[in-house]
Amino acid sequence: MNAPMTRLSGGFAHPAHDSARGFRAILSAMARPGTIGQMQGGQGPAPISDAAATVLLVLCDRTTPLYLAPSHDTPELRDWIAFHCSAPLVAPGDAGFALGDWAALQPLDRFAIGTPEYPDRAATLIVDNHDFDAPAQNLRGPGIKDRARLALPEVEPFTANHAHFPLGWDAIFTAGARIAALPRSTEVF
């Protein structure tokens, strides 16, 4: 039924509208840590999820250095990214965005956390194929009324990252068509 995945397929049917909707889903996830949203429109070759592919289409272009962790560093995905985003593929330390499974993204201290003068110059980690059924942790901070909960692969890296605030990386979790986010401002407890 579905046409076979090629490096040319899987882009947005209507780039302006689809990226606008995609951005609102990412904005909603980042502004309300712990809430899980739906994210569709992009489709890349395995192992990338539709949600992560959509995040790349919405946010990445030739101006955003991207690191592909070993889990996602396949020739097919490289070709797909080259055609749809043209994002230059770089080493972890130079990356504005990093894409991979949680285990493949380790160690996290390789990623930019910004500088005191420019905390925005920090990496955004796209943690793909996230296990949304993992044990949920308590969250508090900006974007959260009282308390929220979200499944996280580990706790310690997020508390350590938050301790650097206003420095730190920001994480987007994707799996299938689901998306959630955990900015550095969120405290995991």
């Binding site: 780039p15 302006a16 990226s19 606008a20 951005f23 990412i26 904005l27 980042m30 502004a31 919405v58 946010l59 990445c60 272009d61 101006t63 955003t64 905390p119 925005d120 920090a122 955004t124 900006p142 974007g143 605030f165 206003p166 920001d170 900015p183 550095r184 401002s185």
Partner: peptide, 22 residues
């Protein structure tokens, strides 16, 4: 679309660091 992507990335960093001017 290039411009909107650039603005969207700035908005997301602004959300991640509330009150900081990106």
């Amino acid at each position: 679309e290039d411009t909107k992507r650039m603005i969207r990335r700035a908005i997301l960093k602004g959300i991640a660091v509330p009150g900081y001017q990106v």
